[in-house]
């Protein structure tokens, strides 16, 4: 079976800026794929080239074995796109907008209404598009991208600027559409989002893919220390060091900031058993590395555009 997306050596330059610098990636059918990166990393341009909005300077792209550029009308009904800025006519209402998009794809009114219901905009059907809040506009935009039942959905920072409730509701929606068998590609700079939603992620910076893999695999490969912390005052830091040395827990760093006692270690098991023996488990918290740590390690900490 052909992959949903197969891109090879894609490059795009704008003047002096090499926006995309040799991106190759494969997305399998049914996969939930995330493209991560700081601002200006080339995520959006990459997505636009994959969608067929832009022509790459170099490289080849195939969606379901077909080239998206030049505009391929055989492919268009099979893909759904959502842009960063909501592309609506301000003077049309929510309902008119979804019906307009439905008509482009020869989809009926009932399906359009169902889509509106699904993104929870039925109550706002009569509101003009320019009066929608950021989250509502985002949901309408996604409804328009999904109205024709596409096999492959591209979402460019769908949760940017949303409040936590709207973000979680949108996650549910995205998980559902992926569970229905649709391939979903999204860009984001929220790492928790990528970690929760995506089967695989690619971390991008300066137009290049730095690393690709399942979020959990990337985190594990980082081999970062696990931080175990309990309430301060249950056991002192020097005592803890001694106890850990006795059981041979390897290299550890113990720190007490007066609020909590934190042990950073590569082998959390002996640390936990020592704490349990001491009856010092109150306020226990175990924090492993997250995708964020992977991200920061790969892309550095300096400010971006």
């Amino acid at each position: 079976m052909t992959s949903a997306i197969a891109a090879d050596g894609v490059r795009k330059r704008y003047g002096d800026i090499q926006a995309v610098d040799g991106v190759s990636l494969t997305v399998e059918t049914g996969e939930f794929y995330g493209v991560l990166g700081p601002n200006g990393a080339g995520k959006t341009t990459t997505l636009e080239i994959l969608e067929g909005v832009r022509e790459p300077d170099e490289g080849s792209i195939e969606l379901f074995g077909l080239s998206p550029w030049p505009r391929n009308s055989k492919l268009l009904p099979r893909i759904g796109v959502q842009f960063q800025a909501s592309a609506f006519f301000d003077q049309l209402t929510t309902r008119e907008t979804i019906r307009l998009f439905a008509s482009f794809y020869r989809v009926g009114v009932r399906r359009a209404e169902a889509m509106l219901e699904r993104v929870g905009l039925t109550d706002l059907a009569g509101v003009h598009a320019d009066k929608l809040s950021g989250g509502q506009a985002q949901r309408l935009s996604i409804a328009c991208a999904l109205v024709h039942d596409p096999e492959l959905v591209f979402l460019d920072e769908p949760t940017a600027g949303l409040d936590p409730q709207a973000r979680r509701n949108l996650w549910d929606l995205l998980r559902d559409i992926n569970a229905e068998g649709r391939t979903v590609v999204l860009t984001t700079h929220y790492l928790d989002e990528a970690e929760i939603l995506c089967d695989r992620v690619s971390v991008m910076d300066h137009g290049k893919i730095l690393k690709t893999g399942a979020p959990a695999t990337l985190v594990r490969e980082l081999d970062d220390k696990v931080r175990v912390s309990v309430e301060s005052g249950l056991v002192t830091a020097p005592a803890m060091c001694e106890l850990l040395a006795e059981v041979g827990a390897g290299s550890v760093a113990v720190e007490d900031d007066g609020v909590s006692l934190t042990v950073a270690t590569n082998t959390p098991a002996p640390v936990l058993s020592v704490l349990a023996e001491q009856g010092a488990l109150r306020g226990l918290e175990v924090r492993g590395a997250t995708l964020e740590d992977v991200f920061l390690q790969l892309t550095g900490r300096e400010y971006r555009a």
Binding site: T29, E31, E151, G181, E195, C198, R200, A214
Partner: peptide
């Protein structure tokens, strides 16, 4: 098979992705 959800996800690393 391709689009049906119960056919399982062909994407690699699916089982590894913990919470997700």
């Amino acid at each position: 098979p391709g689009t049906a959800p119960q056919s399982g996800k062909p994407g690699p690393g699916k089982t590894e992705s913990g919470e997700a």
